[in-house]
Computed example of a mutant assay.
Amino acid sequence: MKPDVKAFFHKPTYTVSYVVADPESRKAVIIDSALDYDHAAGSTATTTADEIIAFVREQKYSIEFILETHVHADHLTAAPHLQRQLGGRIGIGARVSTVQSTFKKIYNFGDDVAEDGSQFHVLFDDGEIFHVGGLRIEVMATPGHTPACITYIIGDAAFIGDTLFMPDYGTARCDFPGGDARILYRSIRKILALPPETRLFLCHDYAPNGREYLWETTVAEQRAKNIHIHDGVSEDEFVKMRTERDKTLSMPALIIPSIQVNMQAGHLPPPEENGIAYLKVPLNAL
C-alpha cells in the first residue's frame, strides 16, 4: 500500500506538514500542521493552513483525522482551524496526559485545563491500528524527545515527527521536561527495524551547510548515514553524544507559546473581559 503524500513546508519554523490520502476512496489525514505566529507582535494567521485547505478541496479529499506526532515545542498547531474548515477528528498519542501534567504545573494552569487528554478527540495507544479508507494506519510509540511522541505507519510510509532528521542533521534533542536520550535511542531503533525501503517523513528540516530543504528519507539511508545513530552506534555512545550536545542548545524560540497551546489541541486561550486573549510566560522555569 502506497499512500499519496503531499508535503507543505512552513519555512518560519522549518516545519513540514502532510496530507496523506488513499487515492481510491479520497479519504485522507493531515499530520503536524502549523499556524502562522508572529512572536514579536503576538499575532496569528492561517495563511499556511489555508494552503492545505485549498489543496484538500481541490483534490476533493475527505479529511478523517488531523493528527499530531507529539506536543510540538517549536510551532503552534493549526489543527482547530483545519477541523473547523474540513472536519475530521484531532488525534495524538495517549501519553499526552504526561506532558499536560508536567506543563500544567510550569504554567500554573487551574482546574479549567484538563490533564487527561480530553481536549483531543482521539488518543492513540501504542500498537493501535485504525483505517482511513483503504489506508491501514498503525501507531508506534516512539518517546524520548517527549513522553508522548508517536509514529504513524501508513503503508510503505512512516511519519516520525521529531525523532529523526535528515541523515546529515541527526536526531531530536532530549532535554525538554520528560525527555530521555536512552529512551529515544530505543525508539529510533524500533523505527529503523522497519523494512529498509520504508519511506520516512520528517517534521522538520534545517538545511545544514546551505543544501536544499529535504524531508523524505528511508530506513536504509538512515541506518547507513545518520550522523548520530547509524548502524554500529551503541546505546551508551548515543546517550553520551546526545546529552553533551543538548547542553549546548538554546531553547526553541517558540517553546513558551507553543506548548501551552499545543497541549490543549491547538485551542488558543479564551479572550478576557477586554476581548483580548493572553498567553502566559513562566519566568526561569525552563
Results as ranks from 00 to 15, higher is better:
residue 139 V to D: 10
residue 144 G to T: 09
residue 171 T to A: 12
residue 187 S to G: 04
residue 171 T to Y: 06
residue 143 P to H: 10
residue 115 E to F: 03
residue 139 V to E: 12
residue 171 T to W: 03
residue 179 G to C: 12
residue 184 L to N: 00
residue 195 P to C: 10
residue 148 A to I: 02
residue 180 D to S: 13
residue 142 T to E: 05
residue 146 T to A: 12
residue 160 I to E: 05
residue 152 Y to M: 06
residue 128 E to F: 03
residue 148 A to M: 13
residue 165 F to E: 01
residue 189 R to D: 10
residue 132 V to D: 09
residue 168 D to A: 06
residue 114 A to D: 13
residue 130 F to I: 04
residue 201 F to W: 15
residue 156 D to W: 03
residue 124 F to H: 15
residue 204 H to K: 02
residue 183 I to N: 09
residue 122 V to S: 02
residue 162 D to C: 10
residue 193 A to T: 13
residue 120 F to W: 00
residue 193 A to E: 14
residue 178 G to H: 02
residue 188 I to K: 00
residue 163 T to C: 13
residue 154 I to A: 05
residue 179 G to P: 12
residue 158 A to H: 07
residue 130 F to K: 04
residue 178 G to L: 13
residue 185 Y to F: 15
residue 115 E to I: 01
residue 184 L to A: 08
residue 126 D to P: 10
residue 136 R to F: 04
residue 203 C to T: 06
residue 114 A to F: 12
residue 196 P to Q: 05
residue 142 T to H: 02
residue 169 Y to V: 05
residue 125 D to N: 15
residue 186 R to D: 15
residue 128 E to N: 01
residue 125 D to L: 05
residue 115 E to K: 02
residue 181 A to D: 12
residue 157 A to Y: 06
residue 172 A to C: 14
residue 156 D to I: 07
residue 200 L to C: 11
residue 151 T to E: 05
residue 200 L to R: 00
residue 147 P to E: 14
residue 195 P to K: 09
residue 113 V to I: 15
residue 154 I to P: 10
residue 147 P to D: 14
residue 162 D to T: 01
residue 139 V to K: 03
residue 142 T to V: 14
residue 138 E to W: 01
residue 201 F to A: 11
residue 124 F to G: 01
residue 157 A to P: 05
residue 161 G to A: 07
residue 152 Y to S: 01
residue 117 G to V: 00
residue 143 P to E: 05
residue 165 F to Q: 12
residue 117 G to K: 00
residue 118 S to T: 14
residue 141 A to S: 15
residue 125 D to Y: 09
residue 114 A to Q: 07
residue 173 R to H: 13
residue 150 I to S: 06
residue 183 I to V: 15
residue 124 F to V: 05
residue 166 M to C: 01
residue 178 G to A: 12
residue 117 G to M: 11
residue 172 A to S: 05
